[in-house]
Amino acid sequence: MSDHLAVARTYAATPDLWPVAPRFNPIERWYHRLSIADDHEVWLLTWLPGQETEIHDHGGSAGAFHVFSGTLTEDTVSTGVDGTPRVVSRDLGEGADRRFGSHHIHRIVNRSADPAISIHVYGPALTSMTKYRIEPGGLRVLTVERAGAQW
């Protein structure tokens, strides 16, 4: 099994080997799969100021991400014993990285004034992502997206 964080760091250290150059889309986050292997896949994402994901999980995949440039904020969502959602925010600047398990629920947002680039590794490769909304009684499922259909 791959060390997802080591894979992300390796890609971050060798941008000249990326098959595409990062692009920025003013309408939505840009992303491109850099690589797929038997036990993981690697994605390159770009973030203009204000761009973000919805609150989501990774469909049972674990992984890691590395901030190649800029600053991103990760809002991690957990639920207490009573089901009440708790959000913890953490700013991650250039060079910062983070591992996460297969039940991780979060949102990533560029709250800075500068563009950001990040590298994400998922193992196994993503097959679905569930998007959520925080409500007073807990997390509510909004959609379940499938690889090959929505991305």
Results as ranks from 00 to 15, higher is better:
residue 98 R to M: 13
residue 102 S to Y: 01
residue 25 N to L: 02
residue 141 V to M: 06
residue 8 A to K: 01
residue 86 R to A: 12
residue 32 H to C: 07
residue 82 D to K: 00
residue 98 R to E: 11
residue 127 T to L: 12
residue 65 F to I: 02
residue 34 L to R: 06
residue 114 D to W: 01
residue 50 G to Y: 06
residue 99 R to L: 10
residue 12 A to H: 01
residue 79 T to F: 02
residue 142 L to R: 11
residue 34 L to E: 04
residue 62 A to F: 12
residue 67 V to R: 01
residue 113 A to T: 12
residue 134 I to V: 15
residue 9 R to K: 15
residue 143 T to A: 14
residue 83 G to S: 09
residue 29 R to M: 11
residue 38 D to W: 00
residue 116 A to S: 14
residue 42 V to R: 01
residue 101 G to R: 02
residue 67 V to T: 03
residue 50 G to M: 05
residue 135 E to D: 10
residue 82 D to F: 05
residue 91 D to K: 08
residue 49 P to N: 03
residue 28 E to T: 10
residue 95 G to A: 04
residue 11 Y to P: 06
residue 141 V to N: 01
residue 110 N to F: 04
residue 134 I to E: 11
residue 21 A to K: 13
residue 8 A to T: 03
residue 36 I to D: 04
residue 80 G to R: 13
residue 10 T to R: 13
residue 60 G to Q: 07
residue 79 T to I: 14
residue 137 G to L: 06
residue 107 R to F: 09
residue 132 Y to E: 07
residue 10 T to N: 13
residue 51 Q to K: 05
residue 137 G to C: 00
residue 22 P to T: 04
residue 16 D to R: 07
residue 67 V to L: 02
residue 65 F to M: 11
residue 37 A to D: 15
residue 30 W to G: 03
residue 32 H to L: 00
residue 75 D to T: 00
residue 45 L to N: 10
residue 81 V to K: 08
residue 61 S to E: 09
